[in-house]
Simulated scan of single mutants.
Amino acid sequence: MAATELESVHSADVVTKVDTAEVPSAAWGWSGESRRTFRTAGWVVVVILLAMLFEGPQGASSGSGHTGYIFLIGFAVLLAAILIRDSLLQRKPR
């Protein structure tokens, strides 16, 4: 009887959209994702990648040209495209 009372009290406190049979951690409220947090973190990473383009002056032995800059810009553009696509898909009604 004590287990039944605990389960009924606990299930009344936690309201989730996830079935606790499929995701046991949903009973504790850990199953949700914060899309806003992930998007914000993604844009912060894009800004950091682009800020790396403005590093201090290189020494005379830099040698490899602009390969590093190409990769920084490429990764920043790829991440920005993923974030924009996610934002646009989230707006469409399903």
Rank of each mutant, 00 (worst) to 15 (best):
K17Y: 07
K17G: 12
V18Y: 12
V18Q: 07
V18I: 15
V18E: 09
D19G: 02
T20F: 00
A21D: 13
A21E: 13
A21Q: 07
A21L: 11
V23M: 06
V23F: 08
V23T: 08
P24G: 06
S25M: 14
S25W: 07
A26S: 15
W28M: 15
W28F: 15
S31T: 07
G32N: 09
G32R: 12
S34E: 12
S34N: 15
R35F: 09
R36Q: 11
R36A: 14
R36S: 14
T37P: 00
T37W: 00
T37H: 03
T37V: 06
F38N: 06
F38W: 12
F38S: 09
R39N: 07
T40F: 11
A41R: 15
G42P: 04
W43E: 04
W43A: 01
W43N: 04
W43C: 02
V44S: 08
V46D: 02
V47Q: 04
I48H: 01
L50D: 02
L53F: 02
L53P: 03
F54C: 09
E55Q: 14
E55W: 13
G56N: 15
G56T: 15
G56Y: 13
Q58M: 12
G59E: 11
G59L: 11
G59I: 05
A60C: 04
S61E: 10
S61D: 11
S62K: 09
S62T: 10
S62R: 08
G65Q: 01
G65W: 03
H66W: 03
G68T: 10
G68C: 00
I70K: 01
I70A: 11
F71Y: 08
F71M: 10
I73T: 09
I73K: 03
F75C: 08
F75A: 12
A76H: 02
A76T: 08
L78R: 00
L78C: 04
L79R: 01
A80E: 01
A80C: 03
I82R: 03
L83P: 00
L83C: 01
L83G: 02
R85V: 08
L88G: 00
L88V: 03
L89G: 07
Q90D: 11
Q90F: 05
Q90S: 14
R91P: 00
R91Q: 13
K92N: 06
K92C: 09
K92A: 10
P93N: 12
